[in-house]
Design a protein around this nucleic acid. Structure first.
Lengths: 249, 249
DNA sequence: TCGAGTAATACTCAGATCGAGTAAGACTTG
DNA sequence: CAAGTCTTACTCGATCTGAGTATTACTCGA
């Protein structure tokens, strides 16, 4: 933008028309598994394939467009509090000239993290949307496999140095709940004792409510203390993923 | 994008036209100071203000558009090797409806890191572009102050856990050169001995050439060993910035 | 009601890493 | 040649890490 020659000498016909859309990688944890929201495509191209929810940007900010698409597909209503705890952040923008065979489409991808949301209800716009475990979300339409992969990598990385994991839990949670989030997103078991120690030692990550759960775990064990998210926006020290040498090179 | 209703029921007149541009935050180090490439605006709006280089996206990928804009403004030619060592990555996309008073413009911002490049030569397109120390780059046109701030924060963070600093040096460099990059970007002095130890202990960050500099430093000191960039893409362990509590909350 | 299994929490310990400081040379300029 | 600079190496105590053990409170099913 902002060419000095914007007015003098700019002719819209010199440039191909470009459509701007948003796509949303919405992640949640259902039954201990990391899931992504997908929609079923009815029309060509990619009819019968699944895709990330998305649509054209209207007279709104890009973030508003992403939240609107998310609301439409989940059947939840923004403003009623149902989506208040959703964390939304911009992921990346995809603009290869031929990523959509019909025309030039530049898509701004967003990443959304939500506590376990209900299955989208039938009868609405959202009838064709559902949650899919991320390992099963393959062969998506357009370049959405790549967008999903980028979103997952971002989510995994942000768990290390931000309190993002609390966006996947309810307002109150146990350290075990938090560990399950890390386990689901990273796909690796974590040492319970060390995780406990590290979470409590990071200033501002969690704060105690003074309460405990009403019951022990489903399969036994003592009642766990309850915590809520603290005020830290970055974790110091960070909770690093178990080192995988192959990630480094 | 990729609404199932794309063809059935899509009328372009339902949506406002959106222009797509790229803006480039190009950073280099000149004389020990971190500098950004700015252009002087001749026309309204923001005539007389400085802005980030940028322009409309043509029939090319977004990254190609960013590299083309960078080449045009620096007067360097892509393909001749002059820009080969430039590291380019997408930063973020800015699309607030009124960020440009003339029309709806969505701008994809890129971040470029380069070894010390020459001052753009007069006589070309680039006559109005020049390098400015980042502390002096204020009061830019449009929302470019914010874009620059985002770019700087990204650069500072990536220095911690990627070998990005080598993108600012020549192909061969001393540990002292590398430390100067960190000092310039972070704006903080680093303990020379500890920095030396840490850089050499990170696998794949640098590899020795076996050579040394021909002379000692300008103000004395022994000849330093020369290194080139290694094959690591992530630094393990990371070189963390000196802890600043106020960055955390 | 009891016994086995599970999970929350606390602890120990050895090894890695950290920041800060000291030190020995090698080289510059004046 | 003297004074100052810079690279490189080393030391030290504090902190953080992963791995393991221990204790205890709870669940379920027999």
């Amino acid at each position: 933008m902002d060419e000095t020659s914007f007015l003098a000498g700019y002719d819209p016909r010199d440039y191909p028309a470009i459509a701007v859309t948003v796509d949303v990688v919405a992640l949640t944890i259902r039954g201990g598994r990391l899931c992504v929201l997908l929609v079923e495509r009815g029309e060509q191209p990619f009819a019968g394939h699944r895709a990330l929810p998305g649509g054209f940007v209207r007279e709104e900010t890009l973030g508003e467009a992403a939240l609107r698409e998310l609301a439409e597909e989940t059947g939840l209503t923004p403003g009623t509090g149902e989506l208040d705890r959703v964390h939304l952040e911009q992921l990346q923008t995809y603009g290869d000239p031929h990523r959509d065979p019909r025309m030039r489409v530049v898509s701004v991808a967003y990443l959304a993290f939500a506590p376990s949301l209900p299955e989208p209800t039938a009868g609405s716009d959202a009838a064709r949307a559902y949650w899919v475990p991320v390992e099963e979300a393959k062969d998506l339409a357009f370049d959405h496999d790549g967008i999903l992969a980028d979103g997952l990598e971002r989510a995994r990385a942000k768990l290390e140095y931000t309190p993002l994991a609390t966006a996947f839990t309810g307002a109150e949670f146990t350290i075990g709940d938090l560990r399950q989030v890390y386990t689901a997103v990273w796909g690796e078991e974590l040492h319970a004792g060390n995780f406990h120690r590290k979470v409590l030692s990071v200033p501002g990550f969690v704060e105690s409510t003074g309460e405990t759960t009403a019951r022990g775990g489903e399969r036994g064990g003592p009642r766990a203390r309850l915590y809520r998210a603290g005020d830290a926006r970055l974790l110091h020290p960070a909770l690093l993923r178990p080192t995988r040498e192959d990630r480094v090179r």
